[in-house]
Computed example of a mutant assay.
Amino acid sequence: MNGSSITVTFILTVYKDMNSDKNVFFIVVFLIYIASIFTNITLMLLIYLDTSLHKPMYMFLFSLIVNGLIGSTAVWPKVMVILLTGMNTTSYAGCLIQIFLTATYGACNFTVLTVMAYDRFVSIFNPLKYHTIMTPQKVRQLLLAANLVPVVCVLGQVFLTSQLPLCKNTLHRIFCDNLSLSSLSCGESIQSRMTNLYGICLIIALLILPLLLVLLSYVKIIVFILKASGNIGKKAFETCSPHIIIFVNFSTASLFCVIYNRISPYLPGEANILQSINYLLVPPLLHPIIYGIKNQDIRKSLSKIWKRKIWTI
């Protein structure tokens, strides 16, 4: 089997082990996915329509929402089609596209969350200079870098993977990921070593480094909150808490995903399903829920638009 051929078809074996659980899994995925689409689009429209939300934090949140929709849509519609039809296969090109989109989703989430942490850091430690530092031009530059750099880096990874000659076509997954596809290559070679080394560098640059930067910023923020007086500390915590919750959840899901990919041959298919849901289905749904519950500006904006709609009917 030649990995450069676009006629290669991969078999996703996890679906064969589901049997009667397919219906339950389909219902769970369908309900969460639809809820995620509806709530995220609602929040995007809210940010777009309400000029009072045209602030750096909400621009970054808008980007985070788009990344979440891209990542979940790259996987779950295909999963639901397989569950309904029983055709547990995917094309070579489709597999590479799925790898690119899901990897971009993960990398962009970490870079955008890092930029959001920087925004919160500036707002707490330099409140009087905040608007001078976080100018519209700087916000655009940060957003461009946070999304473009991961896209280019992931493209390089997908290109290297596409050059690997493949000797197998069976993936014990519910969707394609880079490590699993690379494991189908024909033994050890310079190409496979380069691909693995590049992948490790990506993990360090786009996962571990952002993780450390965010943790460092929040250590300083937490120290500030503990030392600050009641109202100041409370306000700082309320400002940061939605980002902290989302960051901790996504970091935990990503860490579990990385660990799972390394030890997956020793785990049952159910573990793959759980980690996939935890990584690609739950986080996009949490963004609007957490920000809707925790953020006063979002609640006020939603109430304002809702009242306006009622009065115009």
Rank of each mutant, 00 (worst) to 15 (best):
K309N: 00
K227I: 04
V223S: 10
V258C: 08
A236H: 04
L12Q: 05
M194N: 13
R140N: 11
A271V: 15
D21E: 07
V154A: 05
L166M: 15
L184Q: 05
K55R: 14
H287E: 10
G230Q: 12
R193S: 10
L171Q: 12
V122R: 03
N19Y: 08
K307I: 09
M116G: 10
N23H: 10
V14C: 04
N196I: 01
F60D: 02
K307Q: 09
I133K: 11
V282P: 02
K309L: 09
I82K: 06
Y291N: 14
F250T: 10
H172E: 13
I203P: 00
N295W: 03
N272W: 03
K294Y: 12
F250W: 03
Y218T: 06
Y266F: 15
A228I: 02
I34W: 10
T85L: 02
L155A: 14
Q296V: 09
T161Y: 04
L128A: 12
G71D: 08
S192N: 06
F159T: 10
S52G: 13
I70V: 15
T102Y: 09
F125H: 14
Q137W: 12
I82N: 00
I37H: 05
V81D: 11
C186A: 10
I259A: 12
N23A: 13
L31I: 15
M57T: 08
V152C: 14
L215D: 00
V219W: 07
I290G: 00
V258N: 08
M134D: 03
F121K: 05
P284Y: 07
M80G: 15
I204T: 11
T42D: 09
T111E: 13
N40K: 12
F247N: 02
F237M: 11
I313F: 06
S162W: 03
K294E: 07
Q163P: 05
I246G: 01
G3P: 06
V282R: 01
A145F: 14
Y279M: 14
Q137L: 08
V151F: 15
Q191G: 14
L267K: 07
N295C: 15
I259E: 02
K294F: 14
F25N: 07
V66T: 13
T111G: 06
T111D: 13
V28P: 08
F224Q: 07
T102N: 08
I203G: 04
L96Y: 04
V139L: 12
K55H: 06
T9A: 04
T9H: 08
I99G: 04
L286Y: 10
Q157Y: 09
I27F: 14
L45R: 15
S4E: 13
N295T: 15
